[in-house]
Design a protein around this nucleic acid. Structure first.
Lengths: 192, 192
DNA sequence: AGCGATGTATACTGACCGGTATAGCTACTA
DNA sequence: TAGTAGCTATACCGGTCAGTATACATCGCT
């Protein structure tokens, strides 16, 4: 998380273009020369600011995670004061709008994990953190509904959630996220 | 599917080593020189047999798909003559043993999709075909149970299925596949 | 006997990989 | 006014990328 160190304008431009380049093409497929060219920055500047490509990859994931969390909380914690059951289902609405707007190629963190098999890669904590946050957030929402066995239910919803992202990106199930929300509703109502 | 053209011994060795190399390291991270060295084959032979790396990637996915389908059908269509409801749940047992034995880094097809954004890549049909087969197989199994709205239920089970693979590989949900099977049982029983 | 298929070994191409080096410019600030 | 942070421009490093070229050995088959 935390983008504390007040990026310079050139660094900011790098992180902006990298978001699209990495997500659209995959991480390995994008070289530092391409990043520098696309951001209108020299490689010297790029290495002065970030030190390595791996560090840029880490920041790419951390910033995407931050945007994603903002999106989710903005949808779920609308000022409308929805009840706890409704808030659980709003998670799937948040996923649906996110998929359409930003995620047509599937979860960026799952995709990054596919490309970064090294458990010690500096970007791995960002991947684990995003997944853990989604699971924890679901747990909190589920707990508020007073459902029986909230941890287990949250785990099931988490898997529906991740599966919906896969199904939507692979494009074999029409209306995937909406279907996942309906299934989530069933599981939820059965546990109340 | 279909590995018709009777591979030569050297070609067979290439396809054997490539399965492990591509799955463990990702596709971009494995060069043709590494493949040739690991298979004990010259690059000349490699290109005589396959023509391009992309063709090898396609065969890698097709052969993995074939093994996966054999695994699933062997588990689900055991000679024990289980009933249709039980056969649906056996799909998740098949996934559980597959994850432990062959899939610790998540679904090879989802991972490949992350690395191959080009819709015209020769390996893309293999990816789509695997996902379509799983969905179709679930649809058939669900239909046999006589459940209401079998297409919709199959779609939900498909998402639980894919989500369980993600959850297991990301390792935030203990007992992910077993939890997905329990959720699948709930959805199934609610539709009978 | 001869040919084609299958293979080895080695060397090469041009492009790109992540990362570094050197030199010079501008703007802010101590 | 001198220093420094941030930047551009260009050239370079060794290594690897996918793919090709050349030359030669071994085998089975007709």
């Amino acid at each position: 998380m935390s983008e504390q160190p007040a990026m310079t304008p050139a660094a900011e431009r790098v992180l902006e273009v990298v978001e699209k380049l990495f997500y659209d093409n995959g991480i390995h497929a994008v070289g530092v020369d391409m990043i520098a060219a696309e951001a209108g920055v020299t490689k010297k500047t790029l290495y002065d600011r970030f030190g390595s490509k791996d560090a840029i990859v880490r920041l790419y994931l951390e910033r995407r995670d931050a945007r994603w969390r903002e999106h989710v909380t903005a949808v779920v914690e609308q000022p409308g004061r929805f009840g706890p059951r409704r808030r659980v289902l709003l998670m799937f609405d948040a996923l649906e709008s996110w998929m359409a707007a930003e995620n047509p190629r599937g979860c960026a963190f799952v995709n990054a994990l596919a490309e970064l098999p090294d458990p010690d890669h500096p970007a791995r904590p960002a991947i684990a953190s995003e997944k853990q946050w989604v699971l924890d957030y679901l747990r909190r929402l589920v707990r508020d509904t007073g459902a029986r066995n909230p941890r287990k239910l949250a785990a099931s919803l988490f898997m529906l959630f991740e599966g919906a992202a896969v199904a939507a990106s692979v494009d074999v199930v029409p209306g995937a996220v909406a279907g996942a929300r309906d299934a989530a509703r069933q599981l939820l109502d059965a546990a109340l």
